[in-house]
Structure formats: C-alpha cells, structure tokens
Amino acid sequence: MIKKQVDPLFNLCRKHDESLRDYIKRIKVEKANIVGCDDQIISSAFKKGLMAEHDLYCELTIAPSQTMAEVFATVECYVLYRNYGGIHKAPSQSGVPADEGHTKFTIPIYQILAQVKDKLWLRRPPSLKGDPDKRSTNKYCAFHRTHGLDTANC
C-alpha cells in the first residue's frame, strides 16, 4: 500500500446526499492511508469537509480544537437528537404508523436533551397551544421549557 500525504484529506467533503456515518467512514479510510495523520489533523479535515450551512458545522467549528473522539461524541449527540427528538415525520401514506420509521433508542429523550440543550443547532419547538394556567403543574417538559406534559412523552 502506498502511503499518502495529509493534503488530500483536506479535499474530502461531505456529499449532499451522504449520511454522516458514511462521511465518517470515508474519512477513516482516507486517514488509514496517510503518514503522520494525528487526531488534530483528522478532526480539522472532518470539520472542513462539512457544508458551512450545516448546523453541525457551526457546532464543531465554534468549539476549540477537538480530538476525533470529542468530534464523534458531538456528532453522535447531534444524530441522536435529530433522529429521536428533533425531527418528526408526518403519518405515512402507506398506512404504516410514522413511528415505525424512527430508530428506536435505549437512551431516554431527557438524557439526550441534557447533552444538547446548549447546542446552536437545537431548535426549540413552538410554544404549546392552550392556556398555560390550565396545564398540569405536575408535569414538566425540558424540551418545551414549560409545564403541561412530561419530557418523556413529548
């Protein structure tokens, strides 16, 4: 195998229709072929290859230099949030409940929210409808930041 220099790594970009998982795989394959590719180099190349308008790009670039383990942890939280709590699918046309298309996680949503609550890419939902004074004060939703429902049932 011919070992490459680090420069080609900075030419890698995440493709428009490419999943983060596939982009990470491509980065790792390229890294394995590069002489002297340390954690800071791979971390910088990974961030550079994201689209600037991507929420994750903003999150990763405002942080100080990160190891790849820290970058991957941030990516994992981002993906978990987007799949589990951040994107809601409309009911499908096929009659199959929309929830069946979601990935099932063993981590409760309140734990995910605790990890991502201060992230720039976190978009809070609109305020709950109805009179706030008529909502149950026994229930609190950390995502909506209001009483009336439990975070776990949000």
Score class of each variant (00 low, 15 high):
T67A: 14
A52G: 08
R124K: 15
F10M: 10
I24N: 06
L60C: 05
L20W: 07
W121C: 07
C77K: 09
A142N: 13
P91V: 09
Y81V: 01
D118V: 08
L80M: 15
K47G: 00
I2D: 03
K117W: 07
Y78E: 02
Q115Y: 06
L149K: 09
Y84I: 12
E30F: 00
A69G: 07
R123M: 09
G85I: 07
H88Y: 03
H54G: 01
V79T: 10
R26E: 03
T106P: 00
I34T: 04
L12N: 00
M1P: 05
A152F: 08
D131L: 10
N153W: 08
Y23S: 03
F46G: 02
V6K: 09
E30S: 12
L56P: 05
Q5P: 00
N33K: 07
E76H: 04
V79F: 03
N138A: 13
V29I: 15
C37V: 01
K119W: 06
T61E: 08
G36F: 11
H102N: 06
I27T: 04
K119P: 03
R26W: 01
P97A: 12
Y84V: 11
C141M: 12
C77G: 02
A32T: 07
F72I: 13
I87P: 01
D39A: 06
K117P: 04
K89G: 03
A52M: 12
D38R: 13
C13K: 08
K3V: 02
Q93H: 08
D38I: 05
H144W: 15
G36E: 09
H54K: 05
E76Y: 06
